[in-house]
Design a protein around this nucleic acid. Structure first.
Lengths: 266, 266
DNA sequence: CGCAATGTTTTATTCTGTGAAACATCGTTT
DNA sequence: AAACGATGTTTCACAGAATAAAACATTGCG
């Protein structure tokens, strides 16, 4: 079905793509951006100018390199209901990272992909890097599998109907086995994986639920397998479950969220 | 001077204006947005579609009303150096709000205006509302005046050359007197105002400095004057100064900021 | 039951976004 | 020191895309 209606307006879409490219890799110049986006330099230049005038990007005057600007941070402070999860999660993620010294990831499902909403980098010098804003598979990775386990059955079917890439020798690509894995996740209420997405990495994931009990996101502790022993397994799991519970609770309490009417500013 | 060069691309600029309108007031429909922005409905409709496809806005399927989407929150997690201030300030603002139960505002200067980067709402039922993303004057308000006091002299001159609106009977609009006020702020290293921008409101502001010592922002505690006594004056001032110092320190420590290379995701 | 307001779609016209290429401004290399 | 190469900036002409207007659909309200 070649969607007959396309209301997308190209110029705007390009600008958004540019913003995402800058989020992906900050401190880029015009040429670099043009190349990686397949746009011409003049176009990128104009887009950046437009974005800069509104503070959505800022440039280092010396080096003529651009990064995302403060105005985006401000918008991020004023999200609609989509922001509730981020708000609730941020301090909890900070605490979880400090407690474990490992990477912490907040992941949601976006169609048939996983999507990293936010991350906290661990304190170890040898560590994995995850990046907010990245799409990943649903059939591998601690948080992703957990999301898949709690997703609508039709989603599971669709995912299983597609080719399942093996990211490492330990990735579960056998359909029947994968369904068992999902079953076990639901039974346990958490998910622990080793080496299934990144070789040498573990991930301990717990489900975050909305007020109506639906699983809407996962929070996970991830790091290098070499640091993962029986004791850490226990403490990380408890920490992740506690964190997930706290975020879930915050979401339920605040409910629809506060949309304070504006009266003035100080 | 009618700027001869205008590299702004209109479609993109309109999209950004739309985002800011949504930040200003979430949960708006097409018509409402079109009216407040002076655009046609079809245009707003297309812009929203484009933004929605990338997750920059999300819509309540029932009510067909739009709000800012999660993707903006994700970008907000990955700001360039502009984000350092927000990162450093967020937890400190939370703590300051909890300590005082009053509104907390993070304000920067944007040309000849003040700009609210972030706010934390106080816990009192009678309270002022401030809103992130709002421009305000430089010559009134606790944080604004403090920023003006530390701004380049040419900025002060320009501001004083313009008409100074009196927001309340207590707003200082006399040029000479205003210069004295700025002088006193610099001498004190903080600023406390009553009723100068909002009648019945106080504001206790302290300067946030970058690593090189320049004042780049202000953090302020604000609330209703009826709750402002000698004791609170002292505790709020100390709390604000401490908070400002801590943010400044965080900024200096983290320096250029961490731009972790991406390897994978979990 | 009908009216009013809102969201959605279509279409024609204009104007704007676009790419190509020239220009300027560096920093680097030989 | 001179020439080169890479990058950011500007110009310009044209195609095509953004836009306004108006028709259509849908919903809620009186």
């Amino acid at each position: 079905m070649t969607e007959p209606k396309d209301y997308k307006i190209a110029a705007v879409d390009r600008a958004l793509a540019l913003l995402e490219a800058l989020a992906d890799r900050p401190e880029q110049g015009v040429t670099s951006l043009a190349k990686s986006l397949g746009m011409t330099k003049s176009l990128v230049f104009r887009l950046l100018h437009t974005l800069e005038e509104r503070g959505f990007v800022s440039r280092d005057p010396e080096r003529a390199e651009y990064s995302l600007g403060y105005r985006i941070g401000v918008l991020g402070e004023r999200l609609g209901k989509d922001g509730a999860l981020l708000y609730a999660a941020r301090p909890v993620m900070d605490a979880l990272r400090d407690k474990t010294s490992e990477n912490v990831n907040l992941v949601i499902r976006e169609g048939l992909k996983s999507y990293v909403l936010a991350t906290r980098a661990g304190y170890h010098s040898i560590r994995l890097f995850a990046q907010a804003g990245r799409n990943g598979p649903l059939h591998a990775g601690g948080g992703s599998l957990l999301l898949l386990a709690y997703a609508d059955p039709s989603v599971v079917d669709t995912v299983l109907a597609q080719p399942l890439e093996a990211f490492t020798p330990h990735t579960v690509t056998d359909r029947a086995k994968l369904r068992q894995v999902l079953e076990r996740i639901r039974a346990n209420g958490y998910n622990i994986v080793l080496n299934d997405l990144d070789d040498g990495a573990f991930s301990v994931a717990a489900p975050i639920r909305s007020a109506d009990g639906a699983v809407i996101a996962s929070i996970s502790v991830a790091g290098a397998v070499v640091r993962f022993d029986e004791e850490r397994r226990e403490t990380y799991l408890k920490a992740a479950l506690d964190a997930a519970a706290e975020i879930s609770e915050r979401l339920s309490i605040h409910g629809p969220g506060e949309n304070g009417r504006v009266k003035s500013m100080a």
